[in-house]
Design a protein around this nucleic acid. Structure first.
Length: 852
RNA sequence: GCGGAUGUGGUGAAAUUGGUAGACACGCUAGACUUAGGAUCUAGUGCUUCACGGCGUGUGGGUUCGAGUCCCUCCAUCCGCACCA
């Protein structure tokens, strides 16, 4: 006798589809609950058994919440722009749209047969013009916004223009790259071009010349998070630093809010820590050092302003703009050679040769602001152009890198903290008192930092400052298969397209390659202009579409906005988000950034997109490697479903271990899970495979078993511990089988209990028990304490902490009586050995410990 | 180097608040039924000992009547960041 999973599963999948069982209600009196999975990129390889892991977990949670009376939004869609489809297009000439559609069809078929409760009506695809119209619209909002540091939020660029027109920019508090100051009169007298350039320094989506990560093999620039260990994350190609005019996102304006927001959301500590490190906040001071020979100043950032008297030289990054200005005639040749050498080194080399000290003396000197000493200015590539100001005040006594540099070039290493030994290396201690430091002498480090900043500010040579590691994100990609950036150039001035011109659809082109002049593929399009003005030819990066898709699901058909206000206010944000930790510094950061921006501009109600986040681990191949077509170790879920059914696959993936842990795929125990489902089936059916239950009250023991299971499973679902929930079902079914239980009052609640995990078999059992409607929205059984209380407890009795025997004792006994009962028992005599116990610890309902 | 996570049987793992370590499952051993079984059922299964018992949660220490759980030390593995001033 077997349970016919094949026909059952197909039947119910069809039923759910026809009945739209999982359609979320746009309006409802029920409380809302939003369960989301990370958007998949539909690759040509299809799903492997690792993909459904998170989807199964989120599906269990969604189905559970429906039983609990929530109006659940559980959508799925596709992050369908991306490199693989484009690369395939380059090789074969097939339009990426076609490849993408084929792949999506495969994904859909594979997902469907696992029985997920997605509301497919709401599906979105980022490459669909009706979707990317609003990605482009958001880009335009970003372009038309600036960051007001006074109100600490993004505002309409018009309010900034108004400020410029009335008072210039001197008193404007903005997150900006602007270094020039102007009055209202000056602003009004500027050309449109000049004004446009200035506004670019304020816009949140802006065009600027910046050092970018250029990947020649991919023919595009990459964001920092797309580079791992100095090579491109995709393909592992070398990356160069190159100065290019690119669209960027002023995410740095949000650094502090992105950091603070982490305290308000339920994410794993590991993930929060990754984001914290990425944002990289450090507090210190900004200090300017005057050149001895010109009006130039070198600005540095330091976290240890207390060690200002330990500065014995300055170091500039080779790319620093003052290098050329400051270098003396005598040193020109040497410095030029070094700059050339530094530029020739790839990021990779620079990273692997960290220990190798190199640099050159510029011949220039700056004045120490307090001692008036002359400090030589060097250049060295251990100083990064991209961090802080691209220059450091070298304190070799406290910083190992400075120490190495000083040692190598025989520069002085003055100690400034009492007891510091700098003969073998730097001593960056944070405790102790300052010495050789003039007015800081005798102060502790902590006090000296405050005092030093005070003095620096008083002298007008700098100020206390918070610095962030996170840079603005480069947004342009020189690719075809992405959202076109909705900008056109009128007389070389970038302007946003009007909303009527959206979506700016991808043009058809003859080849998906850059032009002969090295222009991006879109430059091949013949009619790529707006009213005769050229349109931007770069496209958006992969993370654009995925930075707001969770809002689109709330109202995916909307033609006059990203989603209507009512839906956005009702669904608000994602209650629980399932996905991998690999998106920590990419998608998860950008989505938070865009949400905060949309919130600032009043388009959405929430400040954080994902309230709770669960990182499912990876399923590795049985050889311990990642599952990949490349290694030929991919296990396809289709095969498992065909052999054992979807319910078995679902239970098995959950039973494998804790969701958040990575684990190898090991099918050895799949039989056990399948056996369990058959045992469950047999509990409801007789030997002839006919339903066999009676309308009777469960016995005391049966109800106890059931309610233990209800309690355990409910708690386990809430804390996303699905492996232990599956064991609880096994224990329950084993016990009920032993008890030969076939009572409706026990088996009906059990079928509801297991429905989120094994929905197909649960529906079938429910139907066979005589119900005419789907089990999916039947209220979840409630655990009742009264079924679990017992008259007696089986006490483990230990002597000096070692358990020797157990003793059944009634619950109404008090501590004293329990103690006496134990000491009088026959077993106790043996262990007491005639001695009188020093102490007896009695913990009612738990243990008894006799101390001898 | 810095930060995070994890170390429990032959295997995947459980132990949610400090209270019978190894639930549940795989595997293995023996048996039953059977023409047969990769079906089903029963019993056993941490290590060690003939046994009483002893020992057991990466290492070493500590707190406690009692520690997988709390504190300190060290080790290993995995992940993230990595010249971040």
């Amino acid at each position: 006798m077997d349970y016919p999973f094949n026909s059952i599963e197909k039947k119910w999948q069809k039923y759910w589809q026809e009945q739209q069982t999982f359609a979320a209600q746009d309006q409802s009196d029920d409380p809302k609950f939003y369960v989301l999975d990370m958007f998949p990129y539909p690759s040509g390889a299809g799903l492997h058994v690792g993909h459904p892991l998170g989807y199964i977990a989120s599906d269990i949670y969604s189905r559970y919440k429906r039983h609990k009376g929530f109006n659940v939004l559980h959508p799925m869609g596709y992050d369908s722009f991306g490199l693989p489809a484009e690369q395939y297009a380059i090789q074969t000439g097939q339009h990426p749209k076609i490849t993408t559609e084929t792949n999506i069809a495969t994904y859909r078929r594979q997902l469907d047969q696992i029985g997920f409760s997605f509301d497919w009506q709401r599906a979105v695809q980022t490459s669909d013009p009706s979707y990317y119209k609003w990605t482009q619209w958001i880009f335009i909002q970003l372009f038309n916004s600036w960051y007001n540091t006074k109100t600490d939020q993004a505002e309409d660029i018009q309010s900034l223009i108004h400020l410029f027109e009335t008072e210039g920019n001197i008193d404007v508090n903005a997150h900006s790259d602007s270094t020039i100051e102007f009055s209202a009169e000056k602003w009004k007298s500027m050309s449109e071009m000049k004004q446009s350039e200035i506004l670019m320094d304020y816009r949140i989506a802006y065009l600027a010349n910046s050092f970018v990560n250029w990947c020649p093999a991919l023919g595009t620039v990459l964001a920092n998070d797309e580079i791992k260990e100095g090579v491109s994350e995709r393909g592992g190609h070398p990356v160069e630093r190159k100065k290019m005019r690119q669209w960027s996102m002023r995410i740095s304006a949000y650094a502090d809010r992105l950091l603070k927001g982490l305290e308000t959301i339920e994410w794993s500590d590991a993930l929060k820590e990754i984001q914290r490190n990425w944002i990289g906040k450090s507090e210190g001071a900004s200090i300017r050092f005057k050149s001895t020979s010109s009006e130039n100043e070198i600005e540095v950032f330091t976290t240890r302003p207390d060690t200002i008297f330990g500065v014995s030289f300055m170091v500039l990054a080779p790319e620093h703009e003052l290098v050329e200005v400051l270098t003396t005639e005598a040193q020109k040749e040497e410095v030029a050679a070094y700059v050339k050498y530094a530029a020739s080194r790839s990021e990779r080399e620079r990273m692997t040769e960290v220990k190798k000290v190199s640099g050159a003396f510029t011949g220039a000197y700056v004045l120490h602001p307090f001692s008036g000493e002359s400090l030589p200015v060097w250049i060295g590539d251990y100083v990064l152009a991209g961090y802080g100001t691209g220059a450091v005040m070298a304190v070799p006594s406290g910083d190992q890198r400075d120490w190495d540099f000083a040692q190598h070039f025989s520069l002085p290493i003055p100690a400034v903290i009492e007891g510091q030994d700098v003969s073998q290396g730097a001593d960056g201690r944070y405790e102790g008192r300052l010495c050789n430091s003039d007015f800081l002498d005798g102060l502790t480090v902590k006090v000296a930092i405050i005092k030093a900043i005070e003095s620096i500010e008083k002298k007008g040579i700098g100020n206390g400052k918070v610095n962030y590691r996170m840079r603005d994100a480069v947004f342009s990609r020189q690719r075809y298969w992405g959202e076109p950036i909705p900008i056109y150039y009128k007389n070389d001035i970038p302007k946003a397209l009007p909303i009527e011109a959206l979506p700016l659809s991808l043009p058809e082109i003859d080849k998906y390659l850059p032009t002969e002049d090295g222009e991006p593929p879109l430059a091949r399009a013949k009619e790529w202009n707006y009213g005769g003005n050229p349109i931007e030819t770069s496209t958006m990066p992969g993370w654009a579409g995925s930075s707001w898709y969770f809002f689109r699901y709330m109202d995916q058909m909307r033609k006059d906005g990203m989603a209507n206000k009512k839906s956005l206010n009702y669904w608000q944000n994602v209650d629980i988000y399932f996905g991998g930790a690999e998106h920590a510094t990419g998608h998860l950061l950008y989505a938070r950034f865009w949400t905060k921006f949309l919130n600032d501009r009043g388009y959405v109600k929430v400040d954080e997109p994902f309230k709770r986040l669960i990182n499912q681990g990876m399923i590795l191949a049985s050889d311990g490697q990642k599952m990949s077509k490349r290694y030929g170790n991919v296990v396809n879920p289709d095969d498992i479903v065909a052999q054992y059914g979807a319910d078995t696959l679902r239970l098995f993936e959950m039973f494998l271990g804790p969701l958040e842990q990575s684990k190898p795929w090991d099918t050895d125990s799949i039989e056990g899970v399948h056996r369990f489902l058959r045992k469950l089936w047999r509990l409801y059916h007789n030997a002839e495979n006919n339903i066999d239950i009676v309308d009777a009250e469960g016995s005391k023991e049966e109800l106890k078993v059931l309610h233990q299971c209800i309690k355990k499973v409910t708690e386990d679902i809430e804390r996303i511990s699905f492996n232990t929930a599956v064991s609880a079902f096994m224990i329950c079914v084993n016990r009920l089988t032993e008890l030969k239980c076939n009572k409706r009052s026990v088996l009906e609640p059990l079928s509801i209990l297991i429905a989120p995990f094994a929905p197909h078999i649960a529906e079938e059992l429910w139907l066979n028990m005589g119900h005419t409607h789907s089990i999916c929205k039947v209220p979840y059984p409630m655990y009742e304490k009264k079924f679990l209380v017992e008259d007696a407890h089986k006490y483990p009795v230990s002597f000096n902490g070692k358990v020797r025997f157990t003793l059944d004792l009634p619950n109404e006994m008090d501590k004293k009586a329990l103690e006496e009962a134990v000491l009088c028992s026959n077993e106790a005599k043996k262990w007491l050995g005639g001695k009188t116990p020093k102490k007896v610890i009695v913990v009612p309902q738990r243990i008894i410990n006799v101390v001898l």
